[in-house]
């Protein structure tokens, strides 16, 4: 088995695919070999390389606000369709082969759609964060807070698990010295539970910021929000800041 040159060539191509990618000729060769070894997992070595990459990576660089804004706008335009669960994977070229049919189908849809009355102009620029916030405001709850010169408002939807926070008056921080972090108090969590991490953020030089809020875990019923100043530049899991030292606390707008 180990001395089979086809087997060795298959492993070699899979390793090359994981590290450098393959030429079109190599992709064809790989597909032919995979047909000879139908039980081979075509992604196994790519997954190994990915795991190693994670192991060797330095601390993650946070997603810039401008990139996040574009991504969330793209997310808003994307509607997931329920599909069947994953099954055995094929090599990338097999995927490409049938994706050609998908592309053809999409082109057909695009062709039809160009001759169909359209309710909106798809070439219009994606909505800004402020526009998205204002749209959400119609179906969400508003929270407000003020402390000294800091004024903060949050529009939040428990239903959609999304919100937008706008702050004025927060002094910019030296990134090495710390960061601001948002916390969400979930009224449905047991008493004494720590608030949910709403993410870390930085403010503009003029002390303002408008950011989307996407908590990593579900917030069943947001009761309040708070902003803390954390000395760890990457934020913390549980804040040690005392409530009286919070930058601002936001409660439901009456």
């Amino acid at each position: 088995m180990m001395s089979d040159p086809r087997r060795e060539r298959l492993d070699e191509l899979l390793a090359l695919q994981a590290m450098e990618g393959l030429s079109s000729d190599e992709v064809r060769e790989l597909d032919q070999l995979l047909e000879l070894f139908p039980h081979e997992d075509a992604e196994a070595l790519e997954l190994a390389a990915a795991a190693l990459h994670l192991a060797m990576s330095p601390p993650l660089e946070a997603l810039p606000e401008s990139v996040a804004e574009k991504l969330y706008a793209a997310a808003n335009r994307f509607t997931p369709r329920p599909t069947v669960p994953a099954t055995k994977t094929t090599s990338s070229s097999q995927w490409l082969a049938w994706s050609g049919w998908v592309v053809a189908a999409l082109l057909l849809i695009a062709l039809v759609s160009t001759h169909w009355p359209r309710p909106t102009d798809s070439s219009a620029p994606p909505p800004s964060l402020a526009e998205l916030r204002d749209q959400l405001k119609l179906r969400a709850t508003e929270f407000v807070g003020q402390k000294n010169q800091v004024v903060a408002t949050i529009v939040w939807s428990d239903q959609e698990q999304i919100g937008y926070m706008e702050v004025q008056g927060l002094p910019p921080l030296d990134p090495q010295a710390g960061t601001y972090q948002l916390w969400i108090v979930d009224g449905e969590r047991p008493k004494g539970s720590p608030p949910v991490d709403g993410g870390v953020f930085r403010v503009n030089p003029d002390g303002t910021v408008l950011v989307p809020i996407r908590p990593p875990i579900q917030v069943k019923k947001a009761a309040a929000f708070a902003i803390t100043r954390e000395t760890d530049p990457g934020g913390v899991v549980v804040s040690q800041v005392k409530p009286e030292d919070y930058e601002v606390v936001l409660t439901k707008k009456s």
Binding site: P58, A62, G199, F201
Partner: peptide, 29 residues
């Protein structure tokens, strides 16, 4: 090479999950 600048950030749960996964791979390495 990566610059050090950071703006915004991801959730802690995913960060910890990624760190956990990275630690497992590092042990194998």
């Amino acid at each position: 090479p990566l610059p050090e600048e950071t703006i915004g950030g991801g959730g802690h749960d995913s960060r910890l999950e990624i760190q956990d996964e990275a630690a497992k791979a590092a042990a194998v390495l």
